[in-house]
Design a protein around this nucleic acid. Sequence first.
RNA 1: GGAGAGGUGACCGAGCUGGCUUAAGGUGCACGCCUGCUAAGCGUGUGUAGGUCAAAAGCCUACCGAGGGUUCGAAUCCCUCCCUCUCCGCCA
Length: 419
Amino acid sequence: MIDLKYIRANPDVVRNAIVNKNEKADLDLLLVTDEKRRKLQYDFDQLKARQNSVSQIIAQKKRAREDASEELARMAKVAEEIKAIQADLNAVNTEVEARLLTIPNIPHPSVPIGRDESLNEVIRHEGEAPRFDFEPKDHLDIANMNQMLDLSRGAKISGSGFPIYTGFGAKMERALINYMLEYHLQKHGYTELMVPLVVNRKTMTGTGQLPKLEDDMYHISEDDLFLIPTAEVPVTNIYADEVLSYKDLPQKYVAYTPCFRREAGSYGKDTRGLQRLHQFNKVEMVRFVEPENSEAALEEMLHDAEDILKAFGLHYRVVSLCTGDLSFASEKTYDLEVWAAGSGKYLEVSSVSNFGEFQARRANIRYKDADGKMRHPHTLNGSGLATPRLMIALLESYQHADGSLRIPDVLKPWMELKV
RNA sequence: GGAGAGGUGACCGAGCUGGCUUAAGGUGCACGCCUGCUAAGCGUGUGUAGGUCAAAAGCCUACCGAGGGUUCGAAUCCCUCCCUCUCCGCCA
């Protein structure tokens, strides 16, 4: 969330951010409520101060065995007033907090302004698109010819969007995950975490998925728990309500998890094969850094994610999301879109974002800097990468005319591990 | 799921027969002193949040897991909930 003091001082900046991000938050109502809150807080403080000082007098008199009944009678009234104001104050505080949680993060000045993804900015292209002397097939055909997927049985046991990887397909999926994990561990210096796949409401609020995106998540109502839509949620929240030292920063974590998304409202859109799933695997990178380092960290993470695509020899492009496509909590986001040679389009395989202090403030993650000042670290995360569309690109890029598949050299050792 | 113990400031830890404690003491941290260097020692300072102020200082208020209650007054008493640990039960 955004610092309320900042909002008071820069309402127009925040108002613009809300408009540019296509959000509906009511800023004026927040400001009015906040004003009310401060007024109540002032009255409350005044009364409390009086109560405290008279209480001291009562204590002294009692110790000296003097009569304090006059003070007691006066304070009985004050106590009642305080109780009444306290009730109002609690209600207003709750309201301010709730409204504050609906204010999105402010886009970085370098983010292009635009209402939807059509105004995203393609920054550069990397790698070569493969050429074929035959008509390339799409990934689902290749997968079927090589018996790598069983989508209909997945649909039978769970529903559409829950894939079964079979035999060789399962092995390749697992090899991808292991390869990417080890790559980030060994070449980029991340620390691996294995985290819960189910989190509570507070955790979902900390990273900004709640309250806005509740309908997009699987919810276990009996325990009020949510299946994670990304490892970003549990990993970023590991330091919630904690105070770190500047010496602890930066922190770099990588975690593999399945991800669960209801994809509410997107039925029928790009659903063929592995394009859009309710459950998928993803290796995720998360960083906690000092504020002055977050912009550099974003560029670094982008390259960390790109290294995987380069290692696989895939063609892709880097896109800077415009304000309208930026997520609620993000300050700036790069998407990596890999070229699907058979389908002839670019598919998002990674999203790398800088959240500034937005998430840290929500999750109450703080650190003491070298001057002993309490500050919020900046948080970042990036997919490195999500497997389904990576798999699509690999199947379509490395297919032979007869439908058989070439395994990229870097992946071979991971497919041939001996027991 | 059942029984018991416990949750105090960055950390450890006293207080818990309600009012000279608006949290002792220690560690850590910062600065200074001392000593060839290091270690040790000595001194001073050091919480977070909100408010007031142009700003700082100062002052006021809140915060002892969370929320409610009793009381003029709650870290301290009562209730509800959450979490941790130990034991039992169930279980991969």
